[in-house]
Amino acid sequence: MTNSAKDVALSLSLLALSAVWTWLVIDTIPTGWGHGDIGPRAFPMVLGIILGGLCILLLIRTYLLGRTPAGKAGTGDVDAIEEASSERWGSMILVAVEISAYGFLLQKLGFLIATPILILFVLVIHLRLRSWKTILGMTLGMTLGCWLFFEKLLGIYLANGSWFNIG
């Protein structure tokens, strides 16, 4: 995908988001009472309209005038992604699944069971590591290390499971 095509796709999707956002804000949030009460609706509504306006500006700039803003994600951002590949999108989806599954397992099985499952899955399935020393070291080290340090030493509550509870 070229930079121009990316910008068109970005502005159209954010334009749709701003339209839905503004509509939902108007539909669900009440206005103020007057006499200086700006009300809870004003800011989100104005922000939705501003976002829409900016997206239209980006669209005009890219699509009609044929200008593409400089191709850099911005100063100091997390590694600007050089090229989007199917592996990158695949990895993104897999990480999203892993985080969601970890949240679910944490609630049901607790920290001490959910964490080794997550680490094992990531190392063996996602990263395809085959060194059993590394896999065991990471899985047990991270789980027990975090449990001892956070829960036992610092007294921070780590989740207990609703199905099992061995913490």
């Binding site: 990316k6 100091g76 951002d77 590694d79």
Partner: peptide
């Protein structure tokens, strides 16, 4: 970030 939008703002 993949669409080159800065995230710091």
């Amino acid at each position: 970030v993949s669409f080159r939008v800065p995230i710091t703002p």
